[in-house]
Simulated assay, not measured.
Amino acid sequence: MDVLSIDFGTSSTVGVLSAAGRAPRAVEVDGSVTLSSAVFAEEDGRLVVGRDAERRARLDPSRFEPHPKRRIDEGALRLGTTEVAIADAFAAILRRMGEEAERQLGRPPAQTRISHPAGWGASRQDVLRTAAAKAGFRDVRLIPEPVAAAAHYASLGGRHTGPIGVYDLGAGTFDCAVVGGTSRGFTVLAEDGLPDLGSLDIDEALLVHVGRAVSHTDPAQWQRLLRPQSTADRRTRRALLQDVRDAKESLSRHAQTHVPMPEPFGDVLVSRDELEALVRPSLLRSAELLGATIRRAGLTPARLAGVHLVGGPSRMPLLATLLARQLGVVPTIQDQPETAVAFGLHHVPPVVADDRTVPAFAPVRPPWPAARCGPPGRWPGR
């Protein structure tokens, strides 16, 4: 059966296509395996997504929304003079991925699997289902991101002698899970998440830090950057946010870097130590939550077969250090952590759309009692 798996992320969306019994492969859109989740509303109301949306945003930033997934609870977006339902914005992104998959297949995929944060309840999942229907998908299955990530890592080893921990830090949310498994299958033992932690929050913290260094030069102009009133202001703010994001990513590779600033402000030198000081409390909170999730599963970190990092922000050197100190386990990260969930969706059987048991090869009874916690290069996140 042809299956399209879509990791619908806050900043970027990744698709994986499996057809005619062949191994799954990432779907390239506009020459990249990551599709920007941004949307732009043309004057006639037509929605443009991905890189095309980002290019058009330079002309009129008021018609642009870079992270519609983060605004799911608002119901609608105001893009310029156009009001766009959240489901329609989601559908435009999903449709673009579906069109590319259909072009490669020569026919629509028979089934589509779409990821969502573990903390999304029924109402948010309904929005995603509505968007999938508007995108023209049939036989849609929704799967929590940590479940998909666990399926991916289980598929890599082929056999797990113990449970694994999943630490999933995306652009908009943090999810974690503990999954027990053997060569025959695995099950989610515990899961939890933080809705207010992601790479966008790290960007915001760095922007505030930069502002403290320069805002005294011209407080009024800095406020215009924070709350743009004109098209020129919005263009300047968008460029600044991109420069801040690039600086953050650079600090994963270098000890320091400059953030280019618009006039009348001078460029700001930031260091990795400064960034780590800003984000350490939040990352420590996430590490503590993973530790609590492990305990809720009735386990200790020493009994885990491994802790796997998912999502672009997991490239931060500080994160691996904090987790190792907190858990006593050195985490594992792939070369491309952004694609782990999308490939994992392929390995999750369709029966788990509304079930926390994941029979990777055949159903298996886990040796630990299931537990559940409370609700909810370049690293674009998800």
Rank of each mutant, 00 (worst) to 15 (best):
I86R: 08
A101Q: 01
A239V: 11
M97T: 01
W368P: 05
P219M: 01
L200C: 08
S18D: 12
G162E: 14
P163K: 02
R71V: 06
T300N: 12
P281D: 11
R285L: 14
R303C: 10
S37H: 02
D218M: 04
I294Y: 09
V127F: 05
G298H: 04
P264V: 03
L128P: 06
A190R: 12
A154R: 12
T10W: 02
A190T: 10
V352H: 15
S62N: 08
C176W: 02
A92L: 05
V214D: 04
L323A: 03
Q223P: 07
A23Q: 13
L189M: 03
Q336H: 14
L47I: 09
A287H: 03
A340E: 05
L79Q: 06
E83Q: 12
L319Q: 12
T161F: 14
G266F: 08
W222K: 06
G298M: 03
A320K: 10
R296S: 15
V140S: 01
L194I: 10
I294K: 06
S314Q: 11
T257P: 02
G172M: 07
F174C: 08
G119S: 09
V210S: 00
G181H: 02
L197C: 03
A353H: 08
M261S: 02
H152R: 09
R58M: 14
R356M: 05
A362F: 10
A292I: 10
E338M: 02
P337K: 00
R141S: 10
H152N: 14
A255C: 09
V214H: 07
D354A: 15
Q326D: 11
I6A: 00
E102T: 15
A23F: 15
T300R: 13
P380R: 05
R124V: 06
G165F: 01
I93F: 01
H160N: 07
V16R: 03
A132M: 01
T81H: 11
G31L: 00
G291H: 10
I6Q: 01
I86A: 11
A292V: 08
L77Y: 00
V27G: 01
G198Q: 09
M261Q: 02
E204A: 15
I114C: 03
T187Y: 13
R124D: 09
R103A: 14
G75F: 13
A360G: 15
D168V: 08
F137S: 07
E74D: 09
R95T: 00
W368D: 05
H209C: 02
M316P: 13
A132Q: 01
P117F: 02
D273A: 14
L226R: 11
L35D: 05
V210K: 01
G377I: 11
P195M: 12
V329A: 13
V279C: 02
